[in-house]
Design a protein around this nucleic acid. Sequence first.
DNA 1: CCACTACTGCAAGCGGGTTGCATCTGGCGG
DNA 2: CCGCCAGATGCAACCCGCTTGCAGTAGTGG
Lengths: 162, 162
Amino acid sequence: MPHAPHTPPLPFSSLDEIADEVRRAGGRLSAPRRRVLEALFAADGPVSADELARGGPGDGALELSSVYRSLEHLEALGVVAHVHLGHGPGLYALTGAGAREHLVCERCDRVTSVDPSQLDPVRDVVRELFGHHARFSHFPLVGLCAACAAAERSDRGAERRS
Amino acid sequence: MPHAPHTPPLPFSSLDEIADEVRRAGGRLSAPRRRVLEALFAADGPVSADELARGGPGDGALELSSVYRSLEHLEALGVVAHVHLGHGPGLYALTGAGAREHLVCERCDRVTSVDPSQLDPVRDVVRELFGHHARFSHFPLVGLCAACAAAERSDRGAERRS
DNA sequence: CCACTACTGCAAGCGGGTTGCATCTGGCGG
DNA sequence: CCGCCAGATGCAACCCGCTTGCAGTAGTGG
C-alpha cells in the first residue's frame, strides 16, 4: 500500500519537464499519463480522479484505475499532491508554483485556499505549544467560517451538517 | 441525509441520564441502543462502529446498521460525537465531561488528544487571521509530530505514508 | 394491558478506491 | 530503424465504510 509523499515540492512547471522526471525515474509517459497531466495543468484548482478520468469532452474517458495509478506514481515523484476536503473524494493538484493550504467550513462546506505563508503564524503557535509541525495541505483546517460562526451564535438549533 | 450536531456538549454522565434524554426526545432505549451506550461508557477513547458492534465477547454481535443508526440518533441528541482520524473508519465517543480535541501525525499516525482549552491560542490566531472558528474535535489538526518533523529534516527521502 | 410507532435485522446498494491478470506499448540498446 | 521487455493499461472483481428499503418486532405512554 504505497503512500503519499512529503517530497519537498520541487517546482515543475511544464509537461515536458515532468515527462523527463517521469522517465528519469524509470517510468513512461503513456497516453493516459499525459492526459492526466494535461488535465491537471488545465484545471484551476484541485480536481477528483473521476473528473480527471472523464477528461475533456472530445476524447473518450480514461480508465479510473489507470488514473489512480498515474496519480499515485506522480505523487511518489512529488509532482502531484492530493487533499481531503470534507467527506467527498480526494482532490488532486500539481505541486509546482502555487501550492495552497485550505480552510474548510464544516457547516457550509466553503473552502478557503490560502498561500501557505499565511498560515505560518498558526504553525508557529502549534509548534510552540506541541512541537507539532502543522500542515493544512493534505487535511485542511476545519471549523466554522466567520459567517457560520456568527449564525451559530444567534440561530441556536437550526439545520446542521457533519 | 442527517448530519452531525454541534449541539453544545451538555454533560451527560450516566446511562440513566442519557436514557431519560433519549425518551424525552420521543426515542426508545432499545437493547442495541443500550449496548452501544454501555460500550461507549466502557471504552477509554473513541471507538469505531465496528468495535461497538462486536461488543463484549460474551454477547452476540450487534447489527452494524443498527449501531450506525443508534450513533446517528445519539449524535443528534448531542450525547455522542465522532472524529475522523486519518483514513480509517470514524470513531465515536460520549460528549460528556472529558471532551477532547486531536492532533495527528501524518507520518507515524500517532494521535495526541488534548483538552480543548489547550488549543485556544491556536483558535485565537486563526480567528484573528481568517475570522474562522477552528475546531479539532471532528477533524484533527494534522501535521508532523515533533519526532517525525526532526526525522524528516535529517533523513530526507525515507519511507512515507499518506 | 393495548396500540402506536420507533426501532431492529437483514440484504441490497453506493461511493471511493484498490487489485489481479492478460494484453499492449513506450522507448532504450543495438 | 527495429526488437525487446518491463512498465503501464483495460477490465472486472473486490474491499471498506457506510446507508437504505422494508417487513417484522418490541418499548412505552396512556
